[in-house]
Design a protein around this nucleic acid. Structure first.
Lengths: 150, 150
DNA sequence: AAATATAGTTAATTAAGTTAACTAAATGGC
DNA sequence: GCCATTTAGTTAACTTAATTAACTATATTT
């Protein structure tokens, strides 16, 4: 008999464990836990790390675009960038052409911290996916990236 | 020149987009959005759906174990089960052997709704992973499940 | 110049998650 | 049997996160 479902009245063919959405949530939760713990000594949240990385790759980006990249609302971006600015990790520089907006930049200190955090994040990746082979890990990343394109 | 990084001062070899944790979060966010929208007409959250599915596969489960399965704290489980019970989707039945605890069960109505929701969830999976082939989708699920074992 | 739109901010609201303290029942030692 | 300890579930208080609405300052359009 099917060991997964040994009831007399078969519930249905679809099982929770075979839903991608569920599997994604479980996996993401696990990855998140690891990163949150690892970043704790730095008093930094994953989203703040992502923001720093986005700033590095998009120097001068506007706050609204950062918000969009992080999939957060503009008011949340304000709070986030405030914290980064207060800790001298990022800089707001008024645009000369449009004085409503800022260009956001990493500070020297932000760059330095970011590189440290990236190493940690990478170690978390390995820890989270310890059950996978290098090949499988790469394939997983490829599939997740492909999924997110559309 | 590397198209991904065309700055003169190379930021670092590790890119945000190559971190599994980041890719997982993006993918999970996308999957979640789809499910949350699709469940909206039913006034049900993904966690409530998961709870129903867990009840189906584990009839008579105790609240504490349900909480653990959902990775939430017991007080949250109370709120969640209250809602399911109020809507007559789930039943709390006092254990005869241990009168502190309940066995949790799906109601007939809960079973019926669950089967409807599972179809929807499956369609969300397909929508979320529209960029993937059937083969890739299966491989993704396999890798995510393997990742979550450890 | 007036009306409209946009970037960013503030403040209020709502929702979610966490923690601590409590009740009731069970267990274990004596 | 009785007392101390543990466990299941609940309640309430607190903290944090996310959402929304309203506002300022600047740009753009007509």
């Amino acid at each position: 008999m099917d060991p997964v479902n040994s009831r007399t009245t078969s519930p249905s063919t679809i099982l929770l464990d075979d839903l991608l959405g569920y599997a994604l949530r479980r996996a993401q939760l696990k990855a998140f836990q690891c990163v949150v713990e690892a970043f704790e000594p730095y008093d930094l949240r994953p989203a703040q790390f992502s923001a720093l990385a986005i700033l590095e790759q998009n120097p001068g980006i506007m706050q609204a675009d950062l918000a969009k990249a992080l999939a957060i609302e503009p008011p949340q971006a304000v709070v986030l960038v405030n914290k980064l600015e207060q800790r001298n990790l990022a800089l707001r520089i008024r645009s000369q052409t449009d004085r409503r907006s800022y260009g956001l930049y990493l500070s020297r200190q932000g760059e330095k911290l970011l590189n440290e955090l990236k190493e940690i994040a990478q170690r978390c990746d390995l820890e989270t996916t310890a059950a996978l082979s290098d090949c499988e890990r790469e394939e997983l990343l490829r599939l997740l990236k492909k999924l997110c394109l559309s």
